[in-house]
């Protein structure tokens, strides 16, 4: 792709708004949410807060960088599409670049507008707003899970007891407005830096990335292969899980113990059954013998058990 700005102008403009919003430039929507998150991380009483803030800031810069990279490569410069596709463009729309139908453009437009103005409902106090949605979720976040005992106590005493479990705790410590403002400026600056590098690499001097990649080849390969995280997962987690599931759990346990266990129980019962069946020899003398043995057993039981059970 490349140089598509003229060919699909609507898509270009909607995407532009999205890029600015994601990168976190004011007054786009992304700015307000990102700003709020970073600020809360910074002022968090948790000791990790500052580190997380820094990581967040850094990645905000990187986000800005790759978003603008995408933007430049897609819409500016020369088209890098294969020639064949271009030739088609004249006589058929099948493979050529053209604007999408309205059913796709309309949602794009709506989303683009929202990504411009969507953040305005949450303008923080530091910037002169009064954040409308700051407490939107607080009922959810503070809801307690009542145990049976608590519910039963609550039901037997008073509804107020329930409230005791559901009241939100007091507000956490908050930083000053000036700090929030300062942090916002920093984050916008970082995003701008990201934009600047993207502009430099992919618009002003397109040859630069290749040179750079050649210089730090190892790092580039690492990044290109996504740190080999996928491969690592594959080797350390996925493959062993699949192997264990297939051979140990499914093969050995489920087939062997679960299915085999019930089968064994069934066969054992049937085995006893066939022993019982063996009495059935068809031989009448043996039958008479069995009868006699049974009768003798009962009579003996009666005779010797009689004294013990006499109840007159």
């Amino acid at each position: 792709m490349g140089g598509l700005r003229k060919k699909i102008p609507v898509t270009f403009w909607t995407m532009t708004m999205a890029v600015f919003a994601i990168s976190g430039f004011p007054p786009f929507a992304g700015f307000f949410s990102k700003d709020e998150i970073l600020y809360q991380a910074f002022v968090s009483p948790n000791s990790l807060g500052k580190i997380l803030w820094f990581v967040g800031l850094l990645t905000a810069g990187l986000t800005s960088f790759y978003m603008f990279r995408l933007w430049y490569l897609t819409f500016f410069g020369e088209s890098r599409a294969p020639k064949a596709a271009h030739d088609d463009h004249g006589n058929g729309h099948a493979h050529g670049v053209h604007e999408s139908p309205w059913i796709m453009l309309a949602p794009l437009a709506i989303l683009a507008v929202l990504s411009v103005i969507g953040g305005w409902v949450g303008v923080p106090a530091a910037l002169g707003g009064h954040s409308e949605i700051e407490h939107f979720l607080s009922p959810v976040m503070h809801a307690q899970y009542l145990s049976y005992e608590q519910v039963s106590v609550a039901m037997s005493t008073h509804p107020q007891v329930v409230a005791q479990f559901t009241n939100p705790p007091s507000e956490a410590a908050e930083g000053s407005k000036s700090l929030e403002l300062l942090l916002a400026v920093v984050s916008v600056a970082v995003a701008a830096i990201g934009w600047f590098f993207a502009h430099l690499f992919y618009f002003a001097k397109p040859a630069l990335p290749a040179q750079l990649a050649a210089k730090v080849r190892g790092l580039y390969a690492l990044l290109l292969n996504k740190y080999w995280i996928d491969e690592l997962y594959g080797a350390v987690i996925v493959t062993p899980i699949l192997l264990v599931s297939r051979y140990v759990l499914k093969g050995l346990f489920d087939t062997g113990v679960i299915t085999g266990g019930s089968l064994a129980l069934g066969y054992a019962t049937q085995g006893v059954g066939s022993v019982v069946q063996r009495i059935q020899s068809g031989n009448i003398r043996s039958y008479a013998g069995w009868l006699a043995i049974g009768a003798a057993a009962l009579l003996l039981l009666t005779y010797f058990g009689f004294g013990a059970h006499l109840t007159f």
Binding site: I279, Q280, G282, Y287, W290, L291, I293, G294, A295, A297
Partner: peptide
């Protein structure tokens, strides 16, 4: 009734 059942199956 067991143990006087031997005749039954035959």
């Amino acid at each position: 009734a067991a143990p006087f059942q031997v005749w039954t199956p035959d």
